[in-house]
Amino acid sequence: EDYYQILGVPRNASQKEIKKAYYQLAKKYHPDTNKDDPKAKEKFSQLAEAYEVLSDEVKRKQYDA
């Protein structure tokens, strides 16, 4: 799945936009606030993985290549 789609940001998003999108979605899908939703944990880990790659310039360049 596309990391940009997961975070809901365009491919040319700035680091600030990526961070903002991640924090909004992380708050929304955090397992502690969605105890009754088994998919929230999965969504949250996808968000974390996408953010880890896109927030790191080197990893992001490799991902975009």
Results as ranks from 00 to 15, higher is better:
residue 1 E to T: 13
residue 1 E to I: 14
residue 3 Y to E: 00
residue 3 Y to H: 04
residue 3 Y to P: 03
residue 4 Y to T: 00
residue 4 Y to S: 00
residue 4 Y to W: 02
residue 6 I to R: 09
residue 6 I to C: 05
residue 7 L to M: 08
residue 7 L to T: 01
residue 7 L to F: 03
residue 7 L to V: 03
residue 9 V to Y: 00
residue 9 V to W: 00
residue 13 A to I: 02
residue 13 A to D: 00
residue 13 A to S: 07
residue 14 S to F: 03
residue 14 S to L: 07
residue 14 S to N: 09
residue 15 Q to T: 12
residue 15 Q to A: 13
residue 16 K to P: 08
residue 17 E to F: 06
residue 17 E to G: 04
residue 17 E to R: 08
residue 18 I to V: 05
residue 19 K to E: 15
residue 20 K to S: 13
residue 20 K to G: 09
residue 20 K to V: 14
residue 20 K to T: 14
residue 21 A to E: 03
residue 21 A to D: 00
residue 22 Y to H: 03
residue 25 L to W: 05
residue 26 A to T: 13
residue 26 A to H: 15
residue 26 A to Q: 10
residue 26 A to I: 13
residue 27 K to Y: 08
residue 27 K to R: 09
residue 28 K to I: 13
residue 29 Y to A: 07
residue 30 H to Y: 09
residue 30 H to K: 06
residue 31 P to D: 09
residue 31 P to C: 07
residue 33 T to S: 12
residue 33 T to M: 13
residue 34 N to K: 08
residue 36 D to Q: 09
residue 36 D to F: 11
residue 37 D to R: 06
residue 37 D to F: 06
residue 40 A to E: 04
residue 40 A to N: 09
residue 41 K to N: 08
residue 41 K to D: 06
residue 41 K to V: 10
residue 41 K to S: 12
residue 41 K to C: 08
residue 42 E to N: 11
residue 42 E to M: 11
residue 43 K to M: 11
residue 44 F to H: 05
residue 45 S to T: 08
residue 45 S to W: 15
residue 46 Q to V: 12
residue 46 Q to L: 10
residue 47 L to F: 06
residue 47 L to T: 03
residue 48 A to F: 14
residue 48 A to Q: 14
residue 48 A to L: 14
residue 48 A to G: 09
residue 48 A to S: 13
residue 49 E to D: 08
residue 49 E to A: 12
residue 50 A to C: 04
residue 50 A to D: 00
residue 50 A to L: 03
residue 51 Y to N: 02
residue 52 E to W: 09
residue 52 E to Y: 09
residue 52 E to M: 11
residue 53 V to I: 12
residue 53 V to N: 04
residue 53 V to L: 04
residue 54 L to D: 00
residue 54 L to N: 00
residue 56 D to V: 03
residue 56 D to A: 02
residue 56 D to Q: 02
residue 57 E to T: 09
residue 57 E to M: 08
residue 58 V to Q: 12
residue 59 K to P: 01
residue 59 K to A: 06
residue 60 R to K: 08
residue 60 R to H: 02
residue 61 K to Y: 04
residue 62 Q to F: 07
residue 62 Q to G: 06
residue 63 Y to T: 03
residue 63 Y to C: 03
residue 64 D to L: 02
residue 64 D to S: 02
residue 65 A to I: 07
residue 65 A to R: 07
